[in-house]
Write a protein that binds this DNA or RNA. Structure first.
Length: 237
RNA sequence: UUGGUAUACGG
């Protein structure tokens, strides 16, 4: 079974989804019992490729054969609920987590913060976020991103400050969200600080950081600075 | 040698 699972996952991870589905059928025919790991691997691959529909289908199949979804299956299917705009399904899963004592797993909490934010259910995102005991960079980034996505730019910047005070190091993804917030309220001062951070941490020429910087300067009305960043960008896409 | 959460800008 482990061999089957390894094979199926690696096919799925390399984008050979149909092949991995075929393997799944072969596995069933060979009389091998599928376990939750088999399903979780496929769900996670579908989700990462934004194949929400497929992710959801495999999740439903997992349930229909009477297996208990684990942390990985749940954390992976949550993004698919947002891709399919099924906020009710998301809340059902959240309720399931409470019934099965999974609601305090940080990986699930992080996914919930992000997914509730995408649904615009910011209060729910905040509740989940506040309940996280040991917030990691992803917890903080998800909350900052949630505020930014919903145009709560000041809250995004405040949360970022809290993150720094909590001595959690931001990563380039955090920075792009905060830059979006700066762009949203045309806050050059904080934007420039973030630019310095990016230069110091050698991520200023990563294309998605560069794009966020260009956007920030442009929305602050600093077209010349935007142009300067643009010209220095290494791999423009 | 099996699965793990957040991903910028524009359209």
């Amino acid at each position: 079974r482990v061999t089957w699972n390894a094979l199926i996952s690696s096919y799925a991870q390399n984008g050979l989804l149909h092949e991995s589905m075929q393997l799944l059928r072969n596995m069933k025919h060979s009389g091998c019992d599928l376990d939750v790991v088999t399903y979780s691997g496929i769900i996670s691959s579908c989700s990462q490729r934004e194949l929400s529909h497929e992710a959801m289908q495999v999740f439903e199949e997992l349930l229909s054969v009477g297996l208990k979804p684990d942390v990985v299956a749940i954390a992976s299917v949550l993004p698919a609920t947002s891709g399919l705009h099924c906020s009710n399904y998301c809340r059902e899963i959240h309720a399931y987590c409470f019934r099965h004592w999974l609601e305090s797993d940080r990986r699930i909490q992080n996914a919930l913060v992000s997914v509730y934010s995408k649904f615009g259910l910011l209060q729910r995102a905040e509740l989940v976020f506040m309940a996280i005991l040991d917030r990691d960079v992803i917890s903080w980034s998800s909350m900052v991103m949630g505020y930014t996505q919903n145009d709560y730019f000041v809250e995004a910047l405040n949360t970022f400050q809290q993150m720094i005070r909590a001595r959690t190091d931001p990563n380039p993804i955090t920075i792009t969200s905060v830059l979006s917030a700066c762009a949203g309220i045309s806050s050059m001062r904080q934007g420039k600080e973030l630019h310095s951070w990016a230069v110091k941490n050698l991520v200023d020429n990563q294309s998605f950081v560069g794009s966020a910087l260009v956007d920030m300067y442009a929305k602050c009305g600093r077209l010349r600075d935007a142009r300067k960043v643009f010209d220095l960008m290494q791999d423009k896409n």
